[in-house]
Structures are given as structure tokens and as C-alpha cells.
């Protein structure tokens, strides 16, 4: 913990659920960004956990906006800071619903305009804030309140959509690897232009596992190959250490699925679908890293 600053920008305590990895992620994002930062938060868990007026747990300026407007709002904010000559970091901190489903047009627009900002999507693979409804990011076979028999479709490949915009920097991360997350946010903020970080954020009540296993769950997702940690800098892909190890010797997928209540009684077809999607993604990234495609 030598290089990670001790300052906390989230005061004790948010109203996040016990064991929430969103608030763990936010801790490290803000540590990396520092005090000269504005957070743009659309409707998501983070807009709720801040606390009740006239108090807030966030020790930096936060701008709460409508679901679909986060990236558009950040575009304006970034332009305004540029106009007055300030180097304030503009960070959008949005959930997967506000990124994959509702906010995707604003996200795409801001990336096309080349806005200088960082978009962080913390992905708990459902609309956690409103009671765990299915989102475009929910993986195949997962039970949510709107897919009680398990989702039939696969997870939307948001990273490929963002990569198609050719941003200068994009990465995936997980709060179970805080140093990795911290350095990725720092690196992203040191680059000009639109940046994107996709963070897997296990959710104890939504994924239905006990709260103490949050960090373990993120680690299992990486080790089983369900979540691949990589960076894409100016088109060049680098797969990070933990995922490289997982590609050589992964832990069985069952170890990741078993503790989660949302995958209880998952059909063999859905399990095969999950596995094939993970393998396809790994193969594609490996080829891209080697420069084959």
C-alpha cells in the first residue's frame, strides 16, 4: 500500500450495502483521481449511497444527472473546464444499466466528439439499485427479478462497442485487484481524450452470495476467465498478469458459479453458453495482443 495515498474521499459511511464492491471501487478511483475531480453520476447505486441532504459522504463535487445524460453532461463540463483553463478531472461513474442500456448513445456521442474525460462503468450485471432487474450486461443463465428462470441471451460486449470508437485508452478492472485498478485510473487520467474503464463489481444481495465473499467473487471471476483484465492503449492490447495466468490454468467455472444464488439451477445449455462466450473473448483478445487481428 506504499504508493496508494491514504486520503479517503468517501467519508464514513455511505449507505451502500455491507460488502458492496461499488464503494470499494469508488474508494480507489477517487484515491487515484485526487481532490481536483468532479464526479458525474447518473441514476445508479452511487447516486443513492451518497447520503441525505444536507449531508453527503462524498468529499469531492458530485453532479447527479439523469440516466441517459451522464456522458453528454461530462462533455459540457469538460469543455467548460477547458475554456477557463482548469485541468480538473471529469469522471463519469455509471452503473451498467446507465452505460450498456440507457446511456449508450451519450457515451458513443462523447467518444465520437473526443471529449477529454474518463468514463467508468462499474458493472454489477443488473439494475441493482431498483431491485436487480435484468440489464443488457446480465450474463446468460443468471436469475434476476425479471428473468426468474435465467436470462436466455448473452452479455452485451460493451468493451467491443467502446473499442470500435478507437479511444486512446480503455481497460477493464476489478476491485479485487485494487492496485491494478488504481494504476489504471491514474494512467487513464494522464492521457488526453476519451477514456473508458469497465470495472466488474460483484453485488452481494443481487448475485445472492454472503457479503464477506465480495472480494473473493471478483477474484474468482478473473481466475475462471469470466472477466478478463486487459488494457487497450492506442489500439495496442495488453492482457494483465492475473488474466494471463487464468488463460494458462483457469479455475473451474463451477467455482465461480456455485456460490452465487443467481446461477442456482443453471441449465447445462446456459453454462455451455457462458463458457463459450468467455473462451471466445479470451481467444480474440489473445489474438489482438499478438497483433494477428
Amino acid at each position: 500500500m506504499t504508493d496508494i495515498p491514504r486520503e479517503e474521499y468517501i467519508l464514513k459511511c455511505t449507505s451502500a450495502c455491507a460488502g458492496c464492491s461499488d464503494s470499494l471501487t469508488l474508494r480507489y478511483v477517487l484515491k487515484a483521481a485526487g481532490p481536483d475531480t468532479v464526479l458525474v453520476v447518473p441514476a445508479c447505486c452511487t447516486s443513492v449511497i451518497q447520503g441525505i441532504y444536507p449531508n453527503t459522504a462524498m468529499n469531492i463535487p458530485v453532479y447527479n444527472v439523469a440516466f441517459a445524460a451522464a456522458a453528454a453532461c461530462a462533455s459540457g463540463m469538460s469543455a467548460a473546464f477547458k475554456a477557463v483553463g482548469r485541468k480538473t478531472n471529469v469522471i463519469v461513474y455509471a452503473g451498467d444499466g446507465g452505460t450498456v442500456d440507457i446511456g449508450i448513445q451519450a457515451l458513443s456521442g462523447a467518444f465520437e466528439r473526443g471529449t477529454d474525460f474518463l468514463y467508468i462503468c462499474y458493472d454489477n450485471e443488473a439494475y441493482g439499485n431498483t431491485g436487480m432487474q435484468r440489464s443488457g450486461s446480465t450474463p446468460a443463465g443468471a436469475r434476476t427479478t425479471t428473468t426468474p428462470a435465467g436470462k436466455g441471451q448473452t452479455k452485451k460486449d460493451l468493451d467491443a462497442i467502446v473499442a470500435a470508437h478507437n479511444p486512446p485508452y480503455m481497460a477493464t478492472a476489478c476491485a479485487s485487484y485494487p492496485k491494478d485498478l488504481f494504476s489504471k485510473v491514474q494512467k487513464a487520467l494522464s492521457i488526453r481524450g476519451p477514456k473508458f474503464i469497465h470495472v466488474l463489481s460483484p453485488c452481494p444481495p443481487g448475485w445472492r452470495y454472503s457479503s464477506e465473499r465480495s472480494v473473493e467473487m471478483g477474484r474468482l471471476a478473473v481466475r475462471s476467465g469470466m472477466w478478463i483484465l486487459y488494457e487497450r492503449e492506442f489500439g495496442k492490447v495488453t492482457i494483465n498478469g492475473p488474466s494471463k495466468a487464468a488463460m494458462i490454468k483457469p479455475v473451474p467455472l463451477e467455482e465461480y458459479l456455485e456460490p452465487q444464488g443467481r446461477f442456482k439451477g443453471i441449465s447445462p445449455e446456459a453454462r455451455a453458453l457462458l463458457r463459450s462466450v468467455a473462451e471466445r473473448n479470451a481467444q480474440r483478445l489473445k489474438k489482438e495482443e499478438e497483433g494477428i487481428c
Partner: peptide, 18 residues
Amino acid sequence: LARSRPTEGACGKTGTWR
């Protein structure tokens, strides 16, 4: 302006959840 101030314990003493 209606502005929230950073305060410790903005969501109450969450230790009572434990």
C-alpha cells in the same frame, strides 16, 4: 443553493446494521 456538505456519518451510524 441546495448543496449537500461532506459530513462524516451522512447516512447515520451504519454500525447499527451489524
